[in-house]
Design a protein around this nucleic acid. Sequence first.
RNA 1: GCUCCCUUCGUCUAGUGGCCCAGGACACCGCCCUCUCAAGGCGGGAACACGAGUUCGAGUCUCGUAGGGAGCACCA
Length: 468
Amino acid sequence: MTVRTRFAPSPTGYLHIGGARTALYCWLQARHRGGQFILRVEDTDRERSTDAAVQAILDGMQWLGLAWDEGPVFQTARMDRYREVATGLIAAGKAYRCWCSRERLDALRAQALAAGAKPRYDGHCRTHAEPVPGITPVIRFRNPDAGTVVFDDRVKGRIEWSNSELDDLVIFRSDGYPTYNFAVVVDDIDMRITDVIRGDDHVNNTPRQINIYAALGAPVPDFAHLPMILGADGQKLSKRHGALGVMQYRDDGYLPHALLNYLVRLGWSHGDQEIFTLSEMIALFDIADVNKAASRFDLAKLGWLNQHYLKTDDPVALAPEFAWHLRAAGIDPATGPAPADVIVALRDRVQTLKEMAARARIWYAPIAQWDARAVEKHLRAEGAATLLAAAHAALAALPAWSPESVHGAIERVAATQDVGMGKVAQPLRVAITGTAVSPSIEHTIYLAGRDEALRRIDVALARATAPG
RNA sequence: GCUCCCUUCGUCUAGUGGCCCAGGACACCGCCCUCUCAAGGCGGGAACACGAGUUCGAGUCUCGUAGGGAGCACCA
């Protein structure tokens, strides 16, 4: 039997980090086993579902590269089917209509709570159904009264549930929409899902869903419940923790495969391996190796991974994404050096493309601000003017313009003037960038372009020698 | 309150009864390298929640305690 997994978000917000990991694990499981990955949109909550959220989820999935084989299937497009199945259940005596009022239900709940028990529906309408004029009844599933439900969760292990803990849940609301627990089961059966991989906030739903499978005479799929992802403070992830939507990570300068690599290791491991290419993930991923406990989101480690990929990926391949960030920062890539060259100069110094874009500004726009301390220390230093002038001449005379040739020129200036590299590099750094910190001096100068570099050295020379 | 689940360095984790006085990675600290900042190299501190039990032997098995989480909706 070919493996079929599905990711089934409800479109009430963007694709957050927890959902992205669930989607990744579903996708990996399908790819690893040579099966299919289906995307289903659980939009039966008409109050909270929005088209914008659907789009946000699709965008997030696409950016991450989690391609689905079927879908997106919208539950709202399957209403007739849910109704058909529910009607069948009623006909078979496995479900019934219920007219119980909200008041009666509330009273029941309060009573149970007061008695220190778990609130459960008492099954009143199983036998005493009294149609109330003008009221559309809900449909309840007739849950078995006795026995236990046992399932072998692929990550949590064996879980056993007594049917006495379960009650007759509503499977169809009075507004004509099916409830979650019912729609998922009908969908998972119809879509022939073999592996249900979802957040562990659903373990409690699983026994009642299994009972529905049984009532429908359908085979029960494998279940794997993933532990939660918490914020760095160990609290449930929320808006307080900042960037939540996956697309926010793009805006913040993270690479999709860096995020994927981070996510795959968060709660799953393969020995001591930290770095995984997509194909390694697919080859090595096993749902059985997923951890049981919740884990915390650690931005520092994501940053480390992101930089790892900035350093090891082909700069040319990274260039389009970097150019996107330059534009996002209000920089026109056409007004300066090739983005790929900038990546080479900065990738050892930043963890994100966003930081990189910010630092790249000096090569695309004039120096906006001079660091007074740097000017004082390096530009107005003893001999700085002489060195700048010598560098200017050496750079102007260079037959070819490349990081290597620039490096050679600076080295020759240092040798000729009989000073260390630092003595000539620092004034030049301030001349080109206005600050004492930048990439290696040859890249700093190279990226400015010869004309602009010489122009800036001229300006710096004036500052170096100006009185005061 | 009830039911279910979870518990190894600050964080992510390795560990499936002896190979573990617990290994790796991120973070942190130190040293080296060095044109600044980084990156890199080398080194360091840092954990089996607690208590019983089973066993020749327990991070690994059992029970209890504590702490954390989820669910108990006509929300998904």
